[in-house]
Design a protein around this nucleic acid. Structure first.
Lengths: 178, 178
DNA sequence: CAGAACATGTAACCGGTTACATGATTTT
DNA sequence: AAAATCATGTAACCGGTTACATGTTCTG
């Protein structure tokens, strides 16, 4: 279900996208919340068209098909956004790693946590630089900007947790050298 | 692959767990990074045992099987934790929703963003209360505590983003009433 | 004794990933 | 002319979810 919504959202934000363009979006800004590959996007676009939520608005060269969201599609999107509770579950390999690192003994865990923290910090700096390169665009395009902030916030939280946990483990190890 | 690691991690943190116990762990603390159902856990434990990474250390009443991580299992876990880059991809329906909410017109988006922010804030308060109920336990069990902090940090980031975005949209709408 | 909680498993289905497959246009 | 990029699709496989299926022990 969520892939449909994400596609409708991308089309609503910036009408006139091809499967190829969408694949890039799902590899860029949208990848922070819902990554998807072209092999999943093309069939889903076909289904969206079959269900009347999107339509092929234009056929370009090289077989390019440009999709537009329909009124029906907009309604479906708005309904999902205003309606039912979304699932709160997330699955993150990077977080799993952070979560398990404290299992190692302090001499191993602390440097690894600091390395991870530095990695997240670097990503945060990258994204902040990307964001600050662009003047805040006006309403519709602005969404890419908000998305970037969401990514930055999540990564910064991971960075801070890794730092705090490394500090805590270090403190404990110093107080009680097992 | 990651489920194996998560299971090994849970067994390393607290040896002597059954599939049933593990299912509860994956529904509790571990759910913030890697949720799993018992229907996935039982077969994977069998595979872990077949591969010599864990073993059945004890059989209790009601068919209860207690698993223990083996030396081999510990080595595999340590290798994954210290080794290769974990995938940075995450998939979150809740974040997708936040991400798309700014697409609605301001009069709809702002209250929904504030409602979401309040929801995240409530979750944060809940988790903080849970955490503060318990004295920080000593080394091995301490991991549940760190995990809680990671969950709190992630949710707080979502809360703050929702609040900031609502403020921003409101500010824009006030400046330029379309 | 009934209902809740403990406890383990299997099977069908679905969403997502990887790999396969093809061809057109642009750039060097 | 070759290589890169644009562009769309299909198929096999795998991990995860939902639903099915069964039996035991404890608690009220």
């Amino acid at each position: 279900m969520s892939l449909r919504i994400a596609l409708l959202g991308a089309l609503a934000a910036n009408d006139g996208l091809s499967g190829y363009d969408l694949a890039k979006t799902f590899d860029g800004s949208l990848s922070y919340v819902w990554p998807a590959r072209h092999s999943q996007i093309y069939p889903e676009l076909a289904k969206l068209a079959a269900d009347g939520l999107a339509s092929v608005s234009e056929e370009g060269s090289r077989g390019r098909k440009v999709y537009a969201i329909t009124e029906n599609g907009r309604a479906t999107l708005a309904e999902w956004l205003t309606g039912a509770e979304p699932s709160r579950s997330i699955r993150s390999e990077a977080s799993l790693r952070l979560f398990l690192l404290p299992l190692l003994d302090p001499s191993q865990a602390v440097p690894l946590l600091r390395r991870e923290a530095e990695r997240f910090a670097a990503q945060v700096r990258d994204l902040e630089a990307t964001r600050d390169l662009h003047e805040p665009p006006t309403a519709p395009g602005r969404n890419g900007w908000y998305a970037l902030d969401l990514g930055i916030g999540q990564l910064a939280a991971l960075r801070d947790w890794a730092t705090a946990t490394a500090d805590d483990i270090e403190r404990l190890a110093a107080a009680d050298p097992a």
